[in-house]
Nucleic acid binder design. Structure first.
Length: 225
DNA sequence: GCGACAG
DNA sequence: ATCTTGTCGC
């Protein structure tokens, strides 16, 4: 998949978001019933990044396939334009898969974004796949949900409900779930709960994080000598 | 002017 | 994201 003609200025990047945001689809196949789900994450190494994709069997949570790719940091870090840093390398990692997963779980926001077009939305549009965003910190306001796993409360930004604060573990800080593309918030939360039998973050995200960290460390030679 | 700001 | 030890708890 091509990600050429990448924006080089903030103004261009914002234009891209404004142009694409209206193509996000808020309905689709029930993502919580997907048979295979992929998690994506990246590790930063100066001006280089390593991206990892881990595909799991959604029923057993066994690893089906993995892929890694490394590349340049494609854009400076600007809040709201975060996706432009990571997407080219994430796409390269996705291109390395043998089989296309039925849904993607992104490490960041989807609709919970100032222009309603976070990383998960962007990656959804570029791949055409159903995507959700599961972020560790919120973008928007929320009331703390009840302490029990499964409890949720609306994540609100500028008067819009853009996602949910969702407890994935009793008494542990919630995660922040939002729709990326071709799904709805209830399905996104249901999928997130399926992927969190043991930890706060989805297994997909945890395993992708481990994979790109390990790959990144071996590339930078830190453990030799 | 000051604080906030996904990763 | 990263700089950073030990400690408490399941």
């Amino acid at each position: 998949m091509r990600t050429d003609r990448w924006p080089s200025t903030e103004a261009e990047a914002i234009e891209v978001q404004q142009r694409l945001r209206h193509r996000v689809e808020l309905t689709g196949p029930d993502v919580s019933a997907a048979r295979t789900v992929a998690g994506l994450d990246v590790d930063y190494n100066g001006d280089r990044i390593v991206a990892a994709v881990v595909v799991l069997d959604a029923e057993t949570l066994d690893v089906v396939e993995t892929s890694v790719a490394d590349g340049d940091t494609a854009f400076p870090y600007v809040p709201g334009l975060f996706a432009f840093r990571e997407i080219p390398t994430l796409i390269a990692a996705l291109d390395g898969l043998d089989a296309t997963p039925e849904a993607l779980v992104c490490d960041g926001q989807g609709l919970a974004h100032p222009r309603r077009f976070g990383l998960a939305c962007h990656l959804g549009l570029l791949t055409g796949l159903p995507t959700i965003g599961v972020a560790k910190t919120p973008l928007g306001r929320y009331d703390m949900p009840a302490a029990q796993r499964g409890s949720r409360s609306p994540l609100v930004d500028d008067g819009d409900e853009v996602g949910a604060a969702l407890r994935t573990r009793d008494g542990v800080k919630p995660v922040f779930v939002s729709v990326g593309h071709r799904t709805d918030l209830d399905s996104a939360c249901a999928l997130t709960l399926r992927l969190t039998p043991s930890y706060r973050l989805p297994e997909t995200t945890r395993l992708a994080d481990q994979l790109c960290r390990g790959e990144s460390a071996s590339l930078s030679d830190q453990w030799v000598r």
